[in-house]
Amino acid sequence: MFEAKMLQSSVLKKIIESLKDLFADANFDCSSSGITLQDMDSSHVALCYLKLRSDEEGFEDYRCDRNITLGVNLGLMSKILKCAGNDDVVTLRAEDEPNILTFIFDSKNSERVSKYDIKLMEIDSELLGIPDTDYSCVVKMPSHEFQRICSNLSQLGDSVTIDCHKEGVDFKVAGEQGSGAIKLKQTTSVDKEEDQVTVQLNEPVTQSFALKFLCAFTKATSLSDTVNLSLTQDTPVVVEYPIAQHGYLRFYLAPKIEE
């Protein structure tokens, strides 16, 4: 038996909304330690990794008697989650050898309980090992700032060059019709921590990435006030949205490399 009761259905809604356009079908791997999801986009350029820990406060109840994999069409899951109120508590339930995933939405005043079943899918996807590595540079910034930068620069070109150096971080685009550059300096005098831009730099990095994917990742903006960009030369960038009381959602994007 698997049963996970999430206090905020809005969190699950936001997660699925941010994934469903790039990642059509995905396996939710459930174990006693929590729920993980890893998936590659169809062009094998981007990877997402979601971790929701069972011992965090976002789950009111969590039970997973044996490890199970729930293969789900994320478009369908998004439709089901639209049937939940934002303040509803959502319970996910499945048997030990499941064909069906059940969603139960309880309204805050317990006056309305709705239940939806969806058929599970057999999804053949290869899990990749993602090593824990030290990155040359980690930028922490307001998530809405990152969203604005990606949106602004995508109007002029397909790829952004991210240049991390000791003064801050530069985002540059050069297209056929024009070019643009946004410089972010480290902030030291901002009151709120979530408004700060910080750059932890071991080594400078200059790397280009496809804006199409970065813009897609920023659909997760409402999950978190801040976003962390971790970069090392000639390796994928990690775009991480912490999810309060649950864990995190990370996107990995392969760079564009000079051939």
């Binding site: 094998h44 981007a46 990749l128 090992g129 993602i130 790829s159 390796t235 490399i257 051939e259």
Partner: peptide
């Protein structure tokens, strides 16, 4: 000219 590479180049099967 910069070329987009695949993500699987960087991670090995688990």
């Amino acid at each position: 000219k910069k070329k987009q590479v695949s993500i699987s180049r960087f991670f090995t099967p688990a």
